[in-house]
């Protein structure tokens, strides 16, 4: 589904991604963790080319992103992205947040788009909020709307960039439950998160990144119980100790 081949990225002289090689299969749930500044957000932002790369190649669904004839908008329409800060459109109602892209990009009729929106709001547990504005919702509700907005495009893959990091602790679970449900339905997911409980329960594979490199990867059980690299052990002991 997604393949990184010798990917390198710099911000000026800062080498933020170093020789990334990675394959993500259809239906796989991959959790990416690591200290801040390790390049994990950059990694997933490269998949829908919110960030360009300077060397190497990324394939999505077999198509190389560097291909100049690639229809980037069509590709992005297939990739759902959920941001740490939700980034809902504050001037639009919840329903309009969900129907904008399907109507403008997919050219779905308003009626059909609204039917999809209603179904998705039901699924993320806030069917009664479709006329509300984002400012009237709690953080957890906003993030669930943001997930529904991404799903409204019926994506083949969902990317999550620290989806619970901006939330109050009591709202984290309602978002993780929605994500767990998605994973169970077979959605291909790449999740940047520090929620190690979620990683243990839901992920098929966990990656640990540091200084722009993938230091370690493995199934959750091996990853958490017998991490190979000292850097991973150090990181895990810091975030799991409390």
């Amino acid at each position: 589904m997604v393949k990184f081949q010798h990917v390198n990225k710099w911000y000026g002289s800062l080498h933020v991604l170093r020789e990334i090689n990675l394959r993500i299969a259809k239906g796989e749930v991959v959790v990416v963790c690591g200290p801040s500044g390790s390049g994990k957000s950059t990694l997933i932002r490269c998949i829908n080319r919110l960030e360009p790369i300077q060397a190497g190649e990324i394939f999505v669904d077999g198509k190389p992103l560097s291909d100049p004839t690639l229809d980037l908008r069509a590709l992005r329409a297939e990739i759902g992205f959920v941001f740490q800060q939700f980034n809902l459109y504050p001037h639009l109602t919840v329903r309009e947040n969900l129907t904008l892209a399907p109507m403008k990009v997919r050219k779905v009729s308003r009626g059909e788009a609204e039917a999809i929106a209603a179904k998705l709001l039901e699924r993320v547990g806030i069917p009664d909020k479709s006329n509300a504005y984002p400012a009237n919702l709690s953080g957890g509700q906003q993030q669930r709307v943001a997930i529904a907005r991404a799903l409204a495009m019926q994506p083949k893959i969902m990317l999550f960039d620290e989806p619970t990091s901006a939330l109050d602790p009591e709202m984290i679970n309602e978002v993780l439950e929605v994500m767990t449900g998605l994973a169970k339905e077979g959605m291909t997911m790449v999740v940047v998160t520090h929620e190690m409980g979620f990683a243990r329960r839901v992920a098929h594979r966990v990656l640990f990144m540091d200084e722009g490199q993938i230091i370690e990867e493995g199934a959750p059980q091996t990853f958490f119980e017998t991490p190979g690299s000292p850097r991973t052990r150090q990181f895990l002991s810091k975030i799991l100790s409390h």
Binding site: N48, L75, A77, Q85, N87, L88, Y89, L100, V105, R149
Partner: peptide, 17 residues
Amino acid sequence: PRGQMEAATATGLSSAQ
């Protein structure tokens, strides 16, 4: 905020849209 543009771009909207 920059995130608004990123969110719209990520759903496949063109820059004009």
